[in-house]
Write a protein that binds this DNA or RNA. Structure first.
Length: 330
DNA sequence: AACTCGGGGGA
DNA sequence: TCCCCAGAGTT
């Protein structure tokens, strides 16, 4: 992995933000893109939001991208481009929590802070047989104390790296390699046949179902799009005119809603295409929907949406759900 | 403390 | 389908 052994705090920070709740294989190409285009933090700081969000497109958790830019600009302007070098200062940065601060502090500056990520939680829970819920406040505190005690204070960077690698390669979530594990004889979970029960993740989140009907409104061969600014999924990304429903609706019902909302007017539109039903499973929501392509014979009255050509669409960041439609859009 | 925030890949 | 990923911010 290109960030291993990396000592530039900027690149370490970049890799850590990208890898939050993200698999290495998924984040790799994004890291490469960012490092190649912005070798130093000042370069990232002066790029437009639009371009950076386009680079982040498809990676998910888009507030990471917003915070990434905010932090790059903060360090560039207020710190003369010099990355902070204490745990406390690093922790203050937007988008940097206790894990990321410990990772940067130990990897870049060899400061004695133990990382506590999914890997470390798992290894500690199993080896020591800790059944406390890892997402509770008490559990986090408890695990953090143990992690900090175990840390090799003379070599925190390598220690942290090694423990995470061990969790990722040997002490895996599913089908861990217990038979070749050097901790086999001491691992409380293995001895008690409880490997699959640890770590203990408490709550299960409820998944809500939503139906998104996107009206791709076309006027004079250009499409109306808008930025999602509300507090919801895909904030800061772009979309077509959205009609959201709690349940499945027929195309006729959606068209009726559009008329009622004065988005289209009788005699001044033409339905050109209705896509197949599509769905996307997010960690906390299940999205169903369709794209309905409509040719408008007169422009929209609202100023909320902007009109862009098919070619210009490629400059905007869209959720995957819409990008899948864009491929079918002529 | 509980909720919210994406998308991908393996079983 | 379910799980889980080098978690953080908000309510």
């Amino acid at each position: 992995m290109p960030w291993k052994g990396e000592k530039d705090p900027y690149k370490i920070w970049l890799s850590e933000i990208i890898l939050q709740q993200t698999r290495v294989e998924q984040g790799m190409s994004y890291y490469q893109k960012f490092v190649q285009q912005f070798p130093v933090i000042q370069q990232l700081a002066r790029v437009s939001d639009k371009k950076v969000f386009k680079l982040w497109e498809g990676l998910g958790y888009y507030t990471r991208c917003k915070n990434l830019l905010e932090t790059a600009r903060f360090i560039s302007k207020n710190k003369k481009g010099v990355f902070p070098n204490t745990y406390e200062e690093i922790l203050q940065l937007k988008g940097v929590g206790t894990y990321t601060a410990a990772a940067i502090a130990s990897f870049a500056y060899n400061l004695p802070h133990a990382v506590l990520d999914g890997n470390v939680f798992r290894v500690l829970a199993r080896v020591f047989g800790i059944g406390k819920e890892i997402d509770s406040t008490e559990g986090k505190k408890y695990f953090n104390q143990i992690a900090q005690e175990l840390l090799d204070k003379k070599n925190p960077g390598n220690y942290n790296q090694a423990l995470m690698d061990f969790g990722a390669i040997v002490c895996k979530p599913i089908a861990p390699l217990c038979l070749v594990c050097p901790f086999q004889k001491h691992c409380m979970a293995y001895i008690n046949n409880a490997v699959s029960k640890l770590p203990n993740k408490g709550k299960k989140l409820k998944i809500k179902t939503r139906w998104f009907y996107f009206l791709a409104l076309k006027y004079k061969n250009k499409f109306y799009i808008r930025q999602r600014v509300e507090k919801d999924i895909w904030r800061n990304l772009f979309e077509f005119n959205l009609i959201e429903k709690a349940k499945e609706n027929s195309t006729a019902q959606i068209i009726n809603t559009a008329k009622r909302n004065e988005i289209i007017e009788k005699g001044f539109y033409d339905v050109e295409l209705v896509s197949p039903k599509q769905h996307q499973q997010l960690s906390h929501q299940k999205i169903y929907g369709r794209l309905i392509k409509i040719k408008l014979l007169k422009p929209l009255l609202t100023k909320e949406m902007i009109l862009v050509s098919k070619k210009q669409l490629t400059q905007y960041a869209f959720p995957k759900f819409i990008n899948d439609y864009l491929k079918q859009l002529q």
